[in-house]
Amino acid sequence: MGITQYSLLVILGCGIVTWLPRVIPFILVRKIHIPDVVLRFLSYVPLCILTALFVQNLLIAREGQLPAINYEYFFASIPTILAAIITKNLMWIVVIGIIAMALTRYFFI
């Protein structure tokens, strides 16, 4: 087996391993009735995950000290949050976030 064939098999294997855990739950959930309480709980999960990721990047953890603010992300998050409040359109939020981060890195770093 040549290096090219081996690399292709590794890439395909990684793709399958990544894809399966994301698809199998959808297949299983279609055949099961989920109670309304569980569905309401699950509706909050994406918001919780996004908030955790946002706060994790916004704060810099230092051992033995209070967390500090990552000003690069803080300044980029202001127009992004405003775009989210005003437009409520995910495409605009992402585009404005990318532009805000690029401008922040260009002018402040």
Rank of each mutant, 00 (worst) to 15 (best):
R105G: 12
L53S: 13
Y44S: 05
I60C: 03
I93V: 11
F107Y: 07
C14Y: 12
R22H: 08
C48W: 14
P67D: 06
I32V: 02
I16P: 10
N57W: 13
A83V: 09
T4P: 13
K31G: 08
A68C: 13
I60N: 02
V45F: 01
I3F: 13
I99C: 02
S77Y: 05
Q5Y: 14
V37P: 01
P79R: 02
I85A: 05
S77I: 02
M1S: 09
G97M: 09
P79V: 00
P46N: 00
L66M: 15
L53C: 12
A102E: 02
Y106M: 09
F54A: 09
P67W: 11
I24S: 05
T104E: 06
L47P: 07
F54V: 01
G64I: 05
L9T: 06
I98L: 07
I109Y: 15
M101K: 06
T87I: 03
I86K: 04
P46M: 04
S43K: 05
G64A: 05
I109D: 14
I93R: 10
Q5F: 15
I85M: 07
E63F: 14
F41T: 00
Q65E: 13
T104V: 03
Y73I: 08
R40K: 15
T51I: 11
F107T: 11
P79Q: 06
C14Q: 14
F75G: 06
V17N: 00
F41R: 13
I11C: 08
L39V: 03
F108A: 10
I60S: 11
M101A: 10
L42Y: 13
F74H: 07
W92M: 06
W19S: 04
N57D: 01
N57R: 10
I96S: 00
I78F: 05
I86Y: 07
F107D: 07
V29M: 12
F41E: 05
Q65A: 14
H33Y: 15
P21A: 00
I27F: 11
I32H: 08
R30E: 10
Q65N: 14
A68P: 14
L9S: 03
V17L: 06
G13W: 04
C48L: 15
H33V: 15
A68E: 14
Q65K: 15
I81N: 00
P79S: 09
L53D: 14
N89R: 03
M91K: 15
L59E: 03
E63N: 14
E63A: 13
P46Y: 04
